[in-house]
Design a protein around this nucleic acid. Structure first.
Length: 756
DNA sequence: GTACGGACTTAGAAACTTTCCA
DNA sequence: TGGAAAGTTTCTAAGTCCGTAC
C-alpha cells in the first residue's frame, strides 16, 4: 500500500490542467444522450442474454420508465403532496398552543439564568459504548451545578471569544494582567473548557436530555427600492409590484455573475419570476431579454460601496448589533452546557445557485416563514417564541436527533436543519467516532484487500463488480456514488454510478501496461481525471464489464451503494464506503509526515513539509479549488520581494565583512559590537529570505488544491497534534482558532506517540 | 430490492476581516 | 493610509447512509 498512493502526486498536474477541456465534453453529452434515447429501442436488440447484459438492460428500462414517470409526475403533484402535508401538520399544531402561550421573553444578557440554567437537571451521566472509542476517559468529570451556575452568570459573549486565544492580542493581554495582578472584580478567571470527551456517551441512541434555544433568526423583510431606482421593460420604466420587484432584485444582484448568462438559469428564473407578477405585469413582461435591471444593479453596487466607506463608529455599531444577535440566538443550552449553534439564521430567499450544469439553477428559493419551521427542543425547556403574529409549524421534542429547527426547502423538497457548531459535544463525539472507525479499518484492511483480490476471480458477476468497485474506492479514495434522480440535479457520479463513458481502457499507455483512464464529474461537478495502471485482473474485469454496453450504461450494473455497504458491514462493524476515504486520507497524512519531516529543518520548513503531506491527501481526495484570480500577479509580487530580500542580504553581508575588517584593525569594544550587530542583521535577513522562499514554494504547489476540506473532514486531528508536539511546532501554525475549537478533543488527548 | 424521506457529513464559493506593504 | 493579498468565516449545495414501507 505504501507505494500505492504515490502516483497521485505525479498525476495531479495532468488531472488539474485538463479540467477546462472537460466542460465542453460534458456539454456535448446532453446531445448525445438525446440521440441515444431515440435509438434505444433498436439498440436494445443488440444485447445478448448474458447475465450482466440482462441486468444492464433492466436497469436501463427502469431508468427510462422513471424518466417518463418523472415527466408525468410533474412538480405540481409534488407540490400537492407537500400542501397536504402542510395542512396535516398545521392541524396537529393545535396541541402546541399552550406551549406557545408559555413562550418566553427572556434575554440572554439580562437573564442568563433562563437560557443557561434551566430547572435543576440531573447530572449528565452517560454510558459508554464499549470498544468504539479506544481512549478511555481519564476520569468522569461532572460539573458541580453551583460552580457552573456561578460561572455562567458571569459569562458573556466577549469572554467566550477570548477563551483559548493564543495570539497575544489586546484582549488576552488584559487577561494576563488579570491573572498576574490582582483579580478584577466581575471579571471571571479564564474558564476551563468543558471536556466532554472525558465523559460517558449515551448508549440508548438519544442525543440529549435537555435542549433549550431561542429559535432561528428569519431573513429581514423585503424593503422596497427607492423611487429613483427603476426597472425598465423594453426601454420604458416600469414600476413593479412588491413581490415582482423583490424577485427582480435577486436577479439584479447577480447581474455580474456568469449564472445570469446561462440559458437554464434565465429560463428558470423567468418562469418563477412570472409567478410572482400581477396579471398586468405578467401580460406585459413576456421576454427576459427586454428587461433592464442595470439601474437596480448599480444601486446595490453603490450600497455595498457605501458600506465599505462607512466610518469606524458606524461599522462598530453594526458589529455590535450583530454580536448581540449572535449572543441571543447563536447559542443553545444542551445538557447543562452552553453550545454554539452552527447556522442559526434561516436561509434568505434568493435564486437557487446549483453547481455545475444544474437543471434547477435560477429557480426562486422562497422565503421561509415561521409557519414553515419545525422547532425541536425539550419539553421542560422554555420553548422559543415565534415572531409576533406568527406560529411555528410544529414544536416537537425528539431527542433522537440533533437539530434544533428544520424546514422543507422548495427547490429539491429536501429538509434543511439548524444544528450545532463543530465545536459542540454532539458534533465532536461523532467526529471522534468517525476516526475510531477508520482506525478499526486499519486493523483489518489487509484482510479486506486480499478478499477483494480473491473476488476478482469470482464466477459471479455481481461479486466481481463489487470487488473491482471496492478496489477503486480503496485505491483511489472514490466516493460511493449513490444513484440520483435524473433531471433533478447536475449529472455527477461516484464509484458505483460510474458509466461506460467515464472509463477508458488502455492495454498499453505511456510505457505502462493496463492503464485505466477515469474521467468524470464528481461531487459539486468537480472533475476527476486520473490514469491508473492497474493489475491485469482488474483490467480484464473492466473489459468484461464494458463489453457490449452503451456509453451511458452503468459500468457496475450489478452493484449499487446499498449492496456494497451491506457487504462492507459484514466485513467490519460500521464499515461503509466512506470509511475508506477517511482511512486512506489519515494514513496517508501519517506516512507522508513521517517521510517528509526533516528533523534538521527549522519551523517554517517543517510547516512546509506538513502542508505537503496535507497536499498529498488533498490530491488523493481530489479536493480542488479554482485558482485564485490574482494568482499570477501575487506570485510575481512575491518573487519581487524575494529578489529585494536577496539584495538586502548581500548588502548586509558586505557590511558585516567590512565591520569585521574594522574590528580587526581597531581592536576596540565599539567595533566589536558593530560586528555583532551586523552578524545579527545577516542572520535575520537570511531567515526572512528563507521564509519567503518557502512561502513561494508552498503557494505555487497549492495553486489549484484546496487543503481545508481534508484538514477539516478527513485527517485524524490527533496525527497533526502529535506531529506538532513531537517537533515543537505551535499548534496554531497548523490550526486556526476555529479549527482548534473543533479539534479541542484531539488537542487535549493526543500525546507524543499517538499512532493512527 | 427498491423507492423514499430523513438526518447528518462533506464541499467549494462568496463574503467578510485582518494583515501586509508601498 | 489605503489597497491588495491572505486568512477566516459564513453560506448552503451536494453528497452518504440509514430506516421504513411496499
Amino acid at each position: 500500500m505504501t507505494g500505492d498512493h504515490g502516483h497521485h502526486q505525479v498525476e495531479s498536474g495532468s488531472r488539474l490542467n485538463d479540467s477546462h477541456k472537460h466542460k465542453d465534453k460534458h456539454k456535448d453529452k446532453e446531445h448525445r444522450h438525446k440521440d441515444h434515447k431515440k435509438d434505444k429501442e433498436r439498440e436494445k436488440s443488440k444485447y445478448t442474454n448474458s447475465e450482466h447484459r440482462d441486468s444492464s438492460e433492466k436497469k436501463h428500462k427502469d431508468r427510462e420508465k422513471e424518466r417518463v414517470k418523472h415527466r408525468e409526475d410533474s412538480s405540481e403533484r409534488h407540490k400537492e403532496k407537500k400542501r397536504e402535508e402542510k395542512i396535516k401538520s398545521h392541524s396537529s399544531n393545535g396541541k402546541h398552543k399552550r406551549e406557545k402561550e408559555n413562550g418566553y421573553v427572556s434575554h440572554i444578557k439580562t437573564e442568563p439564568d433562563s437560557l443557561f440554567f434551566p430547572k435543576p437537571e440531573k447530572t449528565v451521566k452517560r454510558e459508554r459504548d464499549d470498544d468504539e472509542f479506544e481512549y478511555k476517559p481519564k476520569k468522569i468529570k461532572v460539573e458541580k451545578e453551583n460552580k457552573v451556575k456561578k460561572r455562567k452568570q458571569e459569562e458573556d459573549y466577549d469572554d467566550y471569544e477570548e477563551e483559548e486565544d493564543i495570539k497575544p492580542k489586546k484582549k488576552s493581554k488584559v487577561k494576563k494582567e488579570d491573572s498576574t495582578g490582582g483579580k478584577k472584580k466581575g471579571k471571571k478567571e479564564p474558564e476551563e473548557k468543558w471536556k466532554w470527551w472525558e465523559e460517558e456517551r449515551y448508549t440508548d441512541g438519544s442525543k440529549w436530555r435537555f435542549l433549550e434555544h431561542k429559535g432561528p433568526v428569519f431573513a429581514p423583510p423585503y424593503e422596497r427600492l427607492p423611487e429613483n431606482v427603476r426597472f425598465y421593460y423594453d426601454g420604458k420604466p416600469m414600476k413593479l409590484s412588491e413581490s415582482a420587484e423583490e424577485v427582480a432584485t435577486f436577479f439584479a444582484k447577480m447581474l455580474d455573475h456568469e449564472y445570469t448568462t446561462k440559458d437554464i438559469f434565465r429560463k428558470n428564473f423567468f418562469k418563477d419570476w412570472r409567478k410572482e407578477m400581477t396579471s398586468e405585469e405578467k401580460s406585459r413582461i413576456s421576454d427576459l431579454n427586454k428587461c433592464n435591471f442595470t439601474e437596480m444593479s448599480e444601486y446595490f453596487k453603490a450600497q455595498s460601496e457605501a458600506r465599505k466607506q462607512m466610518t469606524k463608529e458606524e461599522k462598530l455599531k453594526i458589529k455590535e448589533e450583530n454580536e448581540r444577535l449572535v449572543g441571543e440566538y447563536g447559542f443553545c443550552l444542551m445538557d447543562n452546557h452552553k453550545e454554539r449553534i452552527g447556522n442559526f439564521r434561516i436561509e434568505p430567499p434568493g435564486l437557487f445557485r446549483g453547481r455545475g450544469d444544474h437543471p434547477k439553477m435560477g429557480m426562486l428559493k422562497r422565503r421561509i416563514r415561521p409557519e414553515d419551521v419545525i422547532i425541536n427542543c425539550s419539553k421542560d425547556s422554555k420553548h422559543p417564541k415565534p415572531p409576533p403574529g406568527s406560529k411555528w409549524k410544529e414544536v416537537r421534542h425528539d431527542n433522537k436527533v440533533t437539530w434544533l429547527a428544520s424546514w422543507t426547502e422548495n427547490i429539491q423538497g429536501s429538509i434543511k436543519y439548524i444544528m450545532l457548531n463543530p465545536s459542540s459535544r454532539i458534533k465532536g463525539e461523532k467526529d471522534w467516532q468517525k476516526y475510531e472507525t477508520a482506525r478499526r479499518l486499519k486493523k483489518c484492511v489487509e484482510k479486506i484487500r486480499s478478499q477483494y483480490r480473491e473476488d476478482w476471480k469470482s464466477k459471479e458477476m455481481r461479486i466481481r463488480q463489487r470487488a473491482v468497485a471496492l478496489y477503486f474506492i480503496d485505491k483511489l479514495a472514490l466516493r460511493a456514488g449513490n444513484e440520483k434522480e435524473e433531471g433533478e440535479s447536475a449529472d455527477t457520479v461516484g464509484c458505483c454510478s460510474l458509466r461506460v463513458e467515464h472509463v477508458n481502457l488502455h492495454p498499453e499507455m505511456d510505457g505502462q501496461e493496463y492503464v485505466v483512464e477515469l474521467d468524470f464529474l464528481g461531487k459539486d461537478s468537480i472533475r476527476y481525471y486520473n490514469k491508473i495502471p492497474v493489475e491485469k485482473r482488474v483490467f480484464k474485469n473492466l473489459q468484461l464489464f464494458l463489453e457490449n454496453k452503451q456509453p451511458e450504461d452503468d459500468v457496475f450494473d450489478r452493484l449499487n451503494t446499498s449492496i456494497l455497504n451491506k457487504h462492507l458491514q459484514e466485513l467490519m462493524d460500521g464499515l461503509t464506503a466512506k470509511v475508506f476515504r477517511t482511512y486512506n486520507a489519515s494514513i496517508t497524512l501519517q506516512q507522508q509526515l513521517k517521510e517528509l519531516t526533516n528533523p534538521e529543518d527549522n519551523v517554517p520548513a517543517k510547516i512546509l513539509s506538513y502542508n505537503r503531506a496535507n497536499r498529498a491527501v488533498a490530491i488523493l481526495c481530489n479536493h480542488q479549488r479554482a485558482p485564485p484570480k490574482t494568482f499570477e500577479k501575487s506570485m510575481q509580487n512575491l518573487q519581487a520581494k524575494i529578489d529585494a530580500k536577496k539584495e538586502q542580504l548581500s548588502a548586509a553581508k558586505k557590511e558585516l565583512k567590512s565591520a569585521k575588517a574594522d574590528a580587526k584593525a581597531m581592536h576596540d569594544e565599539k567595533s566589536k559590537k558593530a560586528v555583532e550587530t551586523k552578524k545579527k542583521a545577516v542572520q535575520r535577513l537570511s531567515e526572512q529570505l528563507m521564509k519567503l522562499e518557502v512561502q513561494a514554494t508552498d503557494r505555487e504547489e497549492n495553486k489549484q488544491i484546496a487543503l481545508g476540506t481534508s484538514k477539516l473532514n478527513y485527517l485524524d486531528p490527533r496525527i497533526s497534534v502529535t506531529w506538532c508536539k513531537k517537533w515543537g511546532i505551535p499548534i496554531e501554525k497548523i490550526y486556526n482558532k476555529t479549527q482548534r475549537e473543533k479539534f479541542a478533543w484531539a488537542i487535549d488527548m493526543a500525546d507524543n506517540d499517538y499512532e493512527f
